[in-house]
Design a protein around this nucleic acid. Sequence first.
DNA 1: CAGTGGTCTAGACCACTCA
DNA 2: GAGTGGTCTAGACCACTGT
Lengths: 261, 261
Amino acid sequence: MAASPGRDQAQHGDFRVIAQHLRDAIAAREYVPGDKLPSERDLATTHRVARNTAREAIAQLRKEGLVTAEHGRGVFVRAKPRWMRFGRRRYSAAMRTFNGLGPFGAEAAAQGRTPHVDCTSITRIKAPAEVASRLSISTDTDVVRRENWYFADGEPVQKGVTFAPWTIVEGTPVADSADMGPKGIYGQFSACGHAITYIREEISARMPTSTEADRLKIPDGVPVIDLWHTGIDANRQPFEVTHFIMRADFAALDYDMPVED
Amino acid sequence: MAASPGRDQAQHGDFRVIAQHLRDAIAAREYVPGDKLPSERDLATTHRVARNTAREAIAQLRKEGLVTAEHGRGVFVRAKPRWMRFGRRRYSAAMRTFNGLGPFGAEAAAQGRTPHVDCTSITRIKAPAEVASRLSISTDTDVVRRENWYFADGEPVQKGVTFAPWTIVEGTPVADSADMGPKGIYGQFSACGHAITYIREEISARMPTSTEADRLKIPDGVPVIDLWHTGIDANRQPFEVTHFIMRADFAALDYDMPVED
DNA sequence: CAGTGGTCTAGACCACTCA
DNA sequence: GAGTGGTCTAGACCACTGT
């Protein structure tokens, strides 16, 4: 040890010590959200380690979602996420009557944000397996596939891909138009005999793929919520499936429900 | 460039190329779940880069949750997570009658896993703010705090901290005993006039803190589901709050519910 | 321009696993 | 003991941001 030039001890876990120092300082509000941390080079000299070691400490905090690095600017304490909450009532008729943005727009507007939805593609395909099983149809059946990207205050928040049997949507705007009219897509379904009455929501969380991180501009250390939503009508028939990928620093889910029907 | 010894080109994004090679190979099932990837030193030599660069490529895949590194053994393609699903009916009376493990045990058993719950502490404290607001009580009010750790097949899966007003649980096993009897904790609540009738579940996802990662043995690239559960009785009075931290590679949530009451 | 994070090199020793 | 990942060094140049 004493032989190694310029150093004396420490080898294992140096970066953990630095990381913990920074965590503590953040917890003690020596750095508040938005503040810039010392540069990697500064950390290295003050802790008497190589820059890479200081950098590794920063990498830990990034993985935990505590800080965000900005190339050329510095490393900043991340602002506490301001979650947008989605609940089952976003599908209720009352939420739809005053705008044409659908459940997302209604929730976003109710929470003081400016929503924007971009429908990037509408195609007709064979039902993928995950869709077919939820709609109780075969994978030979044609479905419409509508891909939507959702923004709040200009920031990308989530992606949603909606599928519905072609036989149901044929001839309606759902099959070929981005504009769903004043009552949104569920107004259209309702008009053809499928009023959304029950929903099923299957929720999991995972890290984004590199593609998702790109498209949704997801910072380091932020997972996605992966949600399969199924719309079910009054006859208990599923008529629509949407696969949402939501930034977990923006979206939260909030359900209240009876324990039994 | 040509001046640097032993190399010729490439500087930017080398590790991304390597990472993409590996991703593609995994997608093409050249490596299947459980397989060992080439060692960092092998990757370095075959791609003609320094070991740190190969290592960075691996780090990317770890962040995405695609692979897991095991010290001294190698880097392995992660097995597809086998999620355990939790739904609203885990709180129904029917799920409780055949065992004393509560909602978790019932779900785990139903899914062919061996559940185990470890109640690590039972204390009496002033209600924390997050609890008080959900129970509609003040932060001066005493509550019981019960900390539980949940295991499936011996692996730690989630942590749950339950709070309930002291005035409700006083004199019952909920206040001081790990053993909740054959009908579980909700049987106890039911016996003192608070049958669970509605629930509210507030769901978000984030990366684990370093403490959580330790205690739940969470591998790299796996987020946690952070869930606040509120139990509400037939009179619409909230009587119990539980804060769950779940490993997102084990737990998924699955709710079916009416859009309106 | 100076200062920042991003990437890379070519080594080194440590800690762990397994034959 | 051989092979693996984990950590560290002391440099280097690139890409980006701001003055």
